[in-house]
Design a protein around this nucleic acid. Structure first.
Lengths: 136, 136
DNA sequence: TATTGACTTAGACAAAGTCCAAGATAGGAT
DNA sequence: ATCCTATCTTGGACTTTGTCTAAGTCAATA
């Protein structure tokens, strides 16, 4: 069983075939899929799995902090199973390709106290935009 | 006429009443409105303006670099007329409030060459998350 | 293996955004 | 000043993305 499922089971999740398949799809390809892309791949393995279940399952994984939601383009959300390794994203403005990247330093440290307006900061997401070698 | 409209006119835009109203709405409130919120406010001034025109107009302003699109929560895109002053966003996880913030340093400089994968980087967006004083 | 609350399903619904063909109009040409 | 025409706008249908509900199913415990 994948690490992901094992962690979820440890939190009281029922281990259903549907959840297993969603986890396998996320673990299997290290790309950033949309919910409907996850559903399409899940259907290959479990033809009767419903869209609602895929949406529910992804949402729960996000709530439990096992998967990250990435809003890349204002269209469909994408799901990133790499939640336990801090990283940011680099997106090609031409073809939409996404790479995980690791900038130096902590972006939160770059925000001075007088720019925090009394907020308690919990995180920072950095999205780099550019053109990949193919689209240049 | 607003600076925004003047710049757009300089680029060959026809100055229609609809575009004037959209620009006025964006200039008038320095908040980050969704397209439908812009439409609702535009209807107050020009009752027959259509949703499609508001979407078109905002999209063109974004293409021309006069307005920024901000994907805050994976739902509706928000539009930020402050495109000519570099800034980032701080979003309250509780109530969704958005503040413009100005972190120190250039986030692009934090991405080492060996993490660029041959991309030509054109920009970086930083989204800080946290809880505002009211939601704490 | 019986029970039960959690899970899944299909389909309706909602929200956000795009597309199209027909009509209107800004701004240059006359 | 008026005409012309490419550009712009409109309403409505359509698509995409996501949520909700009620009824049926099943994993895990006893």
């Amino acid at each position: 069983m994948s690490d992901l499922l094992e962690r979820l089971r440890g939190r009281g999740w029922r281990l259903t075939s549907q959840r297993r398949v969603v986890a396998e799809v996320l673990d299997g390809e290290h790309v950033h899929l949309t919910a409907d892309e996850v559903h399409a791949r899940a259907v290959d393995r479990l033809p009767e799995i419903s869209r609602a279940t895929v949406y529910n399952t992804l949402g729960e994984m996000v709530t439990l902090g096992e998967v990250l939601e990435v809003s890349t383009d204002g269209r469909a959300k994408r799901y990133d199973p790499n939640a336990h390794h801090a990283h940011q994203h680099l997106i090609c403005s031409g073809c939409g390709a996404i790479r995980d990247v690791h900038p130096q330093g902590d972006p939160i440290a770059a925000l001075p106290a007088n720019e925090r307006f009394g907020f308690v900061i919990s995180g920072a997401e950095v999205t780099y935009r550019g053109l990949c070698p193919n689209c240049r």
